[in-house]
Every structure is written in structure tokens, then in C-alpha cells.
Design a protein around this nucleic acid. Structure first.
Lengths: 153, 153
DNA sequence: TCACATTTAATTGTTCGCAATTGAATACGC
DNA sequence: GCGTATTCAATTGCGAACAATTAAATGTGA
């Protein structure tokens, strides 16, 4: 019984787990982003929120949450920190008082220009062609969506 | 100038970011794992630590950290919780008193049998062939390692 | 040998991430 | 129109994740 590791254990080996690959890759990205985002005064999740708002602002918290798969327990304090940093303004909708609309401040809009340098630095760190990255991204998104389908979106 | 979105903004669009694909996939995995791991009384990072220990225990905290890319700030409290759950024992090495060796308790060893059901449930949720998953995993690991090389391992 | 650097865990403080609950506003069903 | 259900954000509590610091043990060089 040659046991490089018992064959029955293969499914439990760390190096065979795609989830660990994804989990550790996410952390690796975070570490690359950290120094770049420090210059913008943002954390990575805050950067994601800003990406959403740079596409379209004056949107309810819920919309941001659906886009990023985050809930109000995460977003409420994060958005308060962005407000404290004068990057966004939070106002109750007059149409529907349940909604809190998130709008960019002038500083929030302006930060977009400084942020343009970030994606190219990440691309360089990836040490990979754009087309390869696009292919991988699409595969990962497809996997993510299949996983989300199981847990009920 | 048809602007589906200004072309200059493409690098900043959320849907073009591979890092967000990875980030959101990691969360999606977490949500699938949650109910499975609840039955084992583990969180996902705790499960990763147990995977490492099921391969080989009686190892220092540092070894676990290198395997999972986590530091003592994360692992120390996590391991204390595993100890409180009677799954591991933490003892100072007599050879080198700086080291804290992590060993499985009998309950910790026994939990491995209950854990064998987990990977197949994940595979089912992935709705994907094993070979496709292996290919994706290898690509993601390669990307992760290139990113880690940039930040100095 | 003895000063000094390195290694290792632990600690502290800040920020996510999420489950569960709360409370207010709105929608709906009859 | 009125009671009930639903929607939405905020809150609370717990467990990561990591930077920065601390403290103890070990290794190294002169």
C-alpha cells in the first residue's frame, strides 16, 4: 500500500480544493491591491463600492448590495466610512423613505481619475495576457453563478 | 459617440475585473459550504486548518500559516476556538520554546470521517465536471502564485 | 561570551462578512 | 380603508483578516 497519501483522502487534500484556490487567490489579489488603494485612501471592498458608483450613483444601498453580493450589515458601516471620508453622501429617498440613496460627492467623482492607474498595475502583477484573464474571469463568473443558483441567488 | 459606457472607463467597470470575479466566487463558495460545515461545527477557515491537520498534525502554527497564507493574527484566535471545541491541542515545543505545536485530539481525528461528505456536495453544487474544475483550479493557483511573487511571497 | 539580530506567537485595533433581529415605510388582500 | 405582509436599512454579535507592536526564545558574529 504505497501511500503518497491514501487515495481515499484525495478529496480532502488541500491542494485538490478549488475553493481554496479561489480563497487564496482572493487574498493574493487583496495584498496586491493594498498598496495601490492605500494611495486612494480606500480598502478593497470600498474600492468595489466606488466602482459601482462610478458607473452610476444616486442608487439605493440595496442595488449596491445586489451588484456586489453584500448585505446591509456589511454595507451600512462601510458606506458610513466612505461618507466620513467625504466621498459619498447618504440621503433618504423622498419617494420611498425606506431607501437610502448613495451619491458621489465631487471628491468621490474626482477620485475616479486617480483610480485609473489601478487596473493596469493589477494587470502587470497578474503577468498574464488580457485575453487569458478575460477567459478565466468568464469561467470563474460562470462557476460563481452556478454556486449562487444552488444557495438561492 | 455611442456610449454603452465610455471606452476609457472599461478598465474600471466592475464586470471587467477578474479580482471581483474571484472575490465574489470565494463568497459564493462560502455560502455553499456554510450549511455543510455547520453540521461539523466548523467555519470555512477552520475547515481549511483541519484539512491541513488531517494531512499531518503536530505542526507549528507557522507551518499552517504558510500553507494557508495566513498569519498568527488570524490563526491564534482561530486555533484557540478549535481548542475550545476540543478538536486540537496546543502545546509549546520542548525543542524550541518559541513554537506552538498543533495536534489533533481524538475528536479532531474522528471529524475527518464526517468531513468526507463535504467535497462531493461541493462538486455537485459546482455543476461542473471534475476535469474542468481541476483545470480551473490549476489556472487560478498559477495566477495566485504569480500575484504572490509580486508582493514578495 | 555577550551584544545584537532573527524567529515565533500573541496581542491590539480596524475593517470586512454575515446571521439574526429590529423598526420604519410601503404594498397587498380582502 | 384596514390589517397584515413585505421591503429596506440599521443594529448587534461573532468570526475572520491583517497591520503593527510586543515579548520571549534562539541564532550569530565579533
Amino acid at each position: 500500500m504505497a501511500r503518497k497519501q491514501s487515495a481515499a483522502d484525495a478529496p480532502l487534500r488541500l491542494d485538490n480544493q478549488i475553493c481554496f484556490a479561489v480563497y487564496s487567490a482572493a487574498h493574493a489579489f487583496n495584498r496586491v491591491y493594498k498598496p495601490l488603494l492605500d494611495r486612494l485612501g480606500l480598502t478593497y471592498p470600498q474600492y468595489l463600492v466606488m466602482l459601482v458608483l462610478w458607473e452610476r450613483d444616486d442608487v439605493p444601498v440595496k442595488d449596491i448590495g445586489e451588484r456586489l453580493f453584500l448585505d446591509s450589515g456589511t454595507l451600512t458601516p462601510l458606506l458610513k466610512r466612505l461618507e466620513a471620508a467625504h466621498l459619498v453622501k447618504r440621503t433618504r429617498s423622498s419617494d420611498d423613505e425606506r431607501l437610502v440613496l448613495i451619491a458621489l460627492t465631487p471628491q468621490g467623482h474626482a477620485l475616479k481619475e486617480k483610480a485609473r492607474a489601478v487596473p493596469q498595475s493589477i494587470l502587470a502583477a497578474s503577468d498574464c495576457s488580457v485575453s487569458e484573464l478575460v477567459t478565466m474571469k468568464d469561467e470563474i463568473v460562470a462557476l460563481r453563478d452556478r454556486l449562487n443558483a444552488v444557495t438561492g441567488e
